[in-house]
Design a protein around this nucleic acid. Structure first.
Lengths: 119, 119
DNA sequence: CGGGATCCACGCGGATACTG
DNA sequence: CAGTATCCGCGTGGATCCCG
């Protein structure tokens, strides 16, 4: 029934599962990717308004991390006032379907989870 | 290119995306579900050994949360010493493919992400 | 064996002020 | 506009001890 490749979850450094969870287990990364997947290109302030409750600091930190991971691109227009555009890279786009699939599940099952919790 | 259902990400309470991220954005939930999906049934200590680095407290907390969400089941054998078995519920099983899909992506792309980060 | 109960450190993340 | 810098509360999560 289940293929057992016997993943070694103990090895935090090399286990991709642990790695990805450490990376996207934070509060904002996944959300930013989802929003960029929906809108294609967004400026810093547009992202912040979209999310609504994120602070400038955390949006900056999150974007930098995702950029250094190669998941999003950052395009700076050298003008005053500055203009910076963020978008998903190819790598980010390849991740997107996996996340939207998760979102779809969330949409379908959140009410059941909530009613379970209420008990 | 993109269907725009215009999700309101600002509404933390009602947005399923925000909800699921708040719920599985912790350090261990996703990992526990993945391991239970692989092994079907596991006892408390077996789970702890599988994960390796989780503390008793966090495993307890995580299991309780997942149980109250209705994602895993908890079967107690009233004997001494006690025996408790954990497994995925139907709901948990329905989530599993979405997570393994994410794991697959992680396996395929983790090396690229790591080399990106190194720059 | 499978937890409960406490204590506590650390770091995530918010609030605020400032800048090119 | 798009950040940077700093301070700091608070919750996550680890360590330890105890119990049925």
């Amino acid at each position: 029934m289940f293929k057992k490749n016997e993943i070694n979850y103990t090895d935090t450094e090399n286990c991709p599962v642990r790695n990805i969870l450490d990376r996207f287990g934070d509060k904002w990364s996944t959300l930013v990717i989802l929003i960029l997947g929906e809108q294609e290109i967004l400026r810093f302030n547009e992202l912040q308004k979209k999310i609504g409750t994120i602070s400038q600091k955390m949006l900056t930190v999150t974007l930098k991390k995702l950029e250094s991971d190669g998941l999003i691109s950052r395009k700076v227009y050298p003008q005053i006032p500055p203009k910076v555009e963020y978008a998903l890279t190819e790598l980010g786009l390849s991740l997107l379907p996996k996340l939207t699939s998760l979102v779809q599940w969330a949409n379908e099952n959140m009410s059941e989870i909530n009613s379970n919790r209420a008990k």
